[in-house]
Design a binder for these strands. Structure first.
Lengths: 216, 216
DNA sequence: CCTAACAATTAGGTATACCTAATAAAATAC
DNA sequence: GTATTTTATTAGGTATACCTAATTGTTAGG
């Protein structure tokens, strides 16, 4: 019984991400996220449970402490890779996700350390998500979706929950990137768009899009 | 029939390296190099042949043009990774081989380009081996092993054919690294050591060790 | 020339991770 | 409270890449 480490890391990472919105993660949701069939996931989850990386109840799948620890390490490597790609190799923020998905399984703890050191221990990835530290400690800022702001509210963009390159390019073209200040001018009723002001320009932003942008 | 790309790359890379010393590469030699059993290699070679990546005659295995092209791309990614690790992330030359062995399968053509660009299109890896260019063109300098120099001959170190960290540390501690000038003071008879002079200091160097150091 | 040694392959078998189709269990609808 | 839908699992099967043991083939010795 030999472990396919990248596969295991992929599962744990997905579970970690999904359990932020749905606590015990359902196998169907996990299957959808990993683009695998539900039975494949069912089976693999059993194996992860036998390795004590997850606990599997009727309600769904939860990470054990060890599973969570591995997931956070993978996320750390992913986000550090993204920073390496943008800050040192000159990639744009919409180009780094897929690349980092491969790098995160190929990076040793030593390389992880060196990247962090070379970049001055960055606190977030290019999309604003926090990078867990070596001990898995993850500082989460209190944020809310831009879509929840009312007219004349202001906020500073903390992070953008989006991976699609096209959408990220679009957001960057509007200047909607971390650390930028946004002011809501008007909120259309019945789920209509928000009119926002970013560095002097005004844009209409769909609710769906605005909900991906987290502000403080 | 789905391809396990990293595995295929691993095989092609090994064949490429081995065919520099032994033209049609024997399966047993390949098995030894890949640390796999001969039957496993036999089988895999058949698959590579069916994909037209190698040709398989009685004498052994040869890369096809396509196989060679892939192998060179992998080697390019490996050596560029090593340069990234030393030049940007601060690794020592003895620490980069294993790391690069994993990175070479995780790097996209875009990342390959960016690394090359960020480093000013380096011509060699930290051990002095040439980095194939994007079109697979590889500039090989005419070199000979240090062990072939006679007393009072001088040479400039071009490359070091060695991967073992301990040996690399040792050589670096003597200053035996690429671009350094070495003078042979004395050659002991019957395969005995060479007495060499490197930046003012004299050392005795075993023939085996000296044969790994290529000079021009 | 025949035989010992070595090289390579075939035969047969394992483990992993995936799949589809069928079934069982749970949640929701009415 | 039963029927329908959704969710999860079992059953059965595929492909890949590895293994050991047995066999064939080739090279070199005597």
């Amino acid at each position: 019984m030999e472990a396919d480490t990248p596969r295991i890391e992929e599962y744990l990472e997905s579970i970690y991400k999904l359990q932020q919105e749905q606590h015990p993660v359902s196998t169907s949701r996990l299957a959808e996220h990993l683009k695998l069939s539900p039975p494949s996931v069912s089976e693999m989850v059993k194996k992860l449970a036998s390795k004590e990386l997850v606990s599997h109840t009727e309600k769904g799948v939860c990470l054990t402490e060890e599973g969570k620890s591995i997931a956070k390490k993978v996320i750390r490597r992913h986000r550090l890779s993204e920073r390496l790609l943008t800050d040192i190799l000159g990639f744009k923020w919409d180009e780094v996700h897929d690349e980092a998905c491969r790098l995160e399984h190929a990076i040793s703890p030593e390389m992880e350390d060196r990247i962090a050191e070379s970049l001055g221990n960055p606190k977030t990835c290019p999309h604003g998500h926090p990078i867990p530290d070596k001990d898995g400690i993850l500082i989460k800022e209190k944020v809310k979706p831009l879509s929840e702001l009312k007219a004349s509210d202001k906020g500073i963009i903390v992070s953008v929950f989006e991976e699609d390159p096209k959408m990220l390019q679009y957001l960057a073209s509007l200047g909607l990137i971390p650390d930028v200040c946004v002011r809501v001018e008007e909120v259309a009723p019945f789920g209509g768009p928000l009119i926002v002001c970013v560095s002097g320009s005004r844009y209409a932003l769909g609710r769906e899009v605005a909900s991906m942008i987290k502000v403080k």
